[in-house]
């Protein structure tokens, strides 16, 4: 018999937290990201190469989640919003104070370009029964995050497997 609460079961495969990014895609973060891993791909550094191959500058594909991580602070906001809210909801529902991401799949569709205003939505795909690992006891869950641009084109899908847990004493 499942020990997953009915409210969680009911939320599986339902669109949650559809939202637009706080700012348009911009090249500064692209360059900072490339610098952080010393990525010299000329698509991101040479406009002539970008024009030839991708029809103009694009963001590094693996940066999808960057455009939705909220500012650390903004005026008038009392709480720090969580970038993958379904994950944090599950931690709270199950009373699991710690969590790690174990698997991450990213599927890339239309290129993301500077100036794009992306929007995202989260879908809980599954929640496991309680499991014990070397980290502690908790549950695994799978969350899909879909990303679309201002033209409603799918630009990518990220699928996360998280493990929320209570540390072994």
């Amino acid at each position: 018999m499942s020990t997953v609460p009915a409210e969680v079961e009911a939320s599986i495969d339902q669109i949650q937290y559809e939202e637009t990014g706080e700012f348009p895609v911009e090249r500064g973060y692209v360059w900072t990201t490339c610098a952080s891993v010393e990525n010299g791909n000329p698509l991101f550094w040479d406009d002539a190469v970008a024009a030839e191959i991708t029809g103009g500058p694009i963001a590094a594909p693996t940066m999808l989640s960057v455009w939705f991580r909220p500012h650390h602070w903004s005026p008038g906001r009392d709480e720090q919003p969580m970038p993958l809210q379904v994950h944090f909801d599950l931690k709270q529902i199950f009373g699991l104070p710690e969590a790690v991401m174990t698997d991450n799949t990213i599927i890339f569709h239309e290129p993301v370009r500077p100036g794009d205003r992306l929007r995202t939505r989260q879908l809980l795909r599954s929640v496991s029964e309680p499991k014990t690992t070397k980290l502690g006891t908790g549950r695994f869950w799978v969350i899909d995050v879909e990303y679309l641009n201002q033209n409603d084109e799918l630009v990518g899908v990220e699928s996360y497997t998280g493990f929320g847990y209570q540390r072994a004493s």
Binding site: N39, N104, T105
Partner: peptide, 20 residues
């Protein structure tokens, strides 16, 4: 991404990555 496209060059286009 950097590791893969260092190898392919700029015409390489990632379709999917799964990592654990």
């Amino acid at each position: 991404e950097r590791f893969v496209t260092d190898w392919t060059g700029p015409t390489g286009r990632l379709g999917r990555m799964k990592f654990r």
